[in-house]
Each structure stands twice: as structure tokens, then as C-alpha cells.
């Protein structure tokens, strides 16, 4: 019988670094051919579902996300209603077929946490105080996941809210940056997120210049963290232009269809 001894800590760290180094080659090109400051190809569609009050579909690299919004309508169960404002009920859910290995469709601990985090990223943007005692429901369905789904989910949810005609202070757009292969890189995909050193998702209200979500997973120096946030904000601004285009193109296509 072969016994594998646990390697000393230093050696293990060295190995992890080696693995991580392969994420970005000498020319600064990443596994999927992107440069460090490049977003994945993004496609956004608004008003894709006819039964929901508002909806959006978003593809970012291999991520595929569908969002449906209802409301504002009477809050159920009654006790969740607030007397002075509307509540947002947000569900982030990964489809069983969204990852390599079948995921149980029951909400996982991670799903529940992301639902809360996304809800809190959207809340500052919506005029909740206009519609007391009601609830706005946001259903984020991850059809295919490849890293950065919380950010892509926020971007898509903001589009769906705007599509539902819910008054908003601003759109919300989210993008992550992180450290992979020893370098700060934009919009990490799944492998870079798992093998890499750190991930910093950021959500932004671009016109008000306010951050509504900021998380960090992994280890970064202060300088690296600042660089990552700056890079993520740059990504947000690019995505925001696409978001506006997607919203407006729905209307333009209706105009051409006369």
C-alpha cells in the first residue's frame, strides 16, 4: 500500500503558486485568450419573458443568466411587509445543470448568501419608499455558471427592474477583478477564481458614483486591493454602456417594427 505523506507547508504553497502562475502566460495572455484588463464577451437582452413584469437575459463569457421581476405587488406572507417602504425579495438560484457536477436544486448556503448580497446591492437603487407595504420580487436564475455570476446577476437584475418600469435612482452594474497568476486581472472566470489568489466583486451606481457591493475573497496587499477595485470600476463603466444600449435597443426595435 502506498502512503502519501502530507507535504510540508512551504512546499504546498510553492505548488499552489506554480499552478497559479500558469493562469497568465509570459505575454500577459490569460487561459481564454484575454488580456489582463479585458472583459469577457457580453450579450444583454431585455424583455425576454412575457409573463414576468420585467426580465433580462445576460451572457458573459460562458455565464448564462435569466432574471425575472414581479411587482411591486402585495407582500406575501403579510408579515414581511414594511409599513414605510417596499421590500425586495431576491432569489439567486443555480440550475442543477449550471455546473459540471449536478448541483442540488435546493437553495444552498451559498445561494442564500448571494441572494442577500444581491438584494442589498440593488436596494439603494430602487425608490422603495414610494411603494409601502408591497414587495418587488427578483428571481435570478443561473442557467450556466463560469465564475462571476453574482456580478453578472446584479447587472441583469438591474436591467430587469428597469424593464419592469420600477423607478430607480440609477442602474446598478457589477464587475469583479482579482489576482490570478500573480497579476491583477479583470472579470475572473471560474478557473482563475478557484486557482487564483483573490477575487474582488464590485457593484456600482455609475451616475451617482456610489458603490453598493464590495467583497473580497483571498489575500491582497492594500495596493493590490486598490488596483483591483479601480480595475473593477473600469469594467463596470464598460458594462454600463452595454446595459444602456440593451435597454434602449428594445425600444428602437419596436419602433422599426411598425
Amino acid at each position: 500500500m502506498k502512503v502519501t505523506k502530507k507535504k510540508p507547508k512551504k512546499e504546498r504553497e510553492k505548488m499552489a503558486n506554480k499552478k497559479s502562475e500558469k493562469l497568465i502566460d509570459k505575454k500577459g495572455i490569460r487561459l481564454d485568450g484575454r488580456k489582463v484588463d479585458e472583459l469577457r464577451p457580453v450579450k444583454m437582452d431585455v424583455g425576454v419573458l412575457s409573463n414576468a413584469d420585467g426580465s433580462a437575459y445576460l451572457e458573459q463569457g460562458r455565464n448564462k443568466i435569466l432574471v425575472g421581476v414581479y411587482g411591486p405587488k402585495e407582500a406575501h406572507p403579510r408579515h414581511i411587509a414594511k409599513q414605510d417602504r417596499a421590500v425586495i425579495q431576491c432569489r439567486y438560484h443555480m440550475a442543477p445543470f449550471s455546473v459540471d457536477e449536478r448541483k442540488s436544486p435546493a437553495p444552498s448556503r451559498r445561494d442564500v448568501e448571494l441572494s442577500k448580497v444581491i438584494r442589498e446591492a440593488l436596494e439603494p437603487a430602487v425608490f422603495l419608499e414610494y411603494y409601502p407595504r408591497t414587495s418587488i420580487q427578483v428571481y435570478i436564475e443561473i442557467l450556466q455558471a463560469d465564475g462571476g455570476t453574482r456580478c453578472a446577476g446584479i447587472t441583469a437584475a438591474a436591467l430587469a427592474l428597469a424593464d419592469a418600469g420600477i423607478p430607480m435612482r440609477d442602474l446598478v452594474v457589477a464587475c469583479a477583478a482579482g489576482k490570478a497568476g500573480g497579476k491583477i486581472a479583470l472579470d475572473l472566470m471560474d478557473t482563475e477564481d478557484k486557482v487564483g489568489e483573490a477575487d474582488v466583486p464590485v457593484a456600482l451606481m455609475p451616475n451617482l458614483n456610489a458603490i453598493t457591493l464590495l467583497q473580497m475573497d483571498g489575500n491582497l496587499s492594500v495596493d493590490e486591493f486598490n488596483a483591483a477595485v479601480d480595475m473593477a470600476l473600469g469594467g463596470c463603466k464598460k458594462l454600463y454602456e452595454l446595459q444602456k444600449e440593451a435597454l434602449k435597443s428594445k425600444y428602437v426595435s419596436a419602433e422599426e417594427a411598425k
Binding site: 428597469a162 423607478p167 440609477d170 442602474l171 451606481m205 451616475n207 435597454l247 434602449k248
Partner: peptide, 18 residues
């Protein structure tokens, strides 16, 4: 055509619907 958050006017104006 404008989207939520777009700055429409600055100064002595009155804010109407939407």
C-alpha cells in the same frame, strides 16, 4: 430616450413624472 440615472437637467427646474 433616456435610462434610469441619466442626468436630465441642472438648476432651477421642477421634477415631473418618472
Amino acid at each position: 430616450l433616456v435610462a434610469p440615472g441619466d442626468l436630465l437637467a441642472e438648476g432651477d427646474y421642477v421634477s415631473g413624472d418618472s
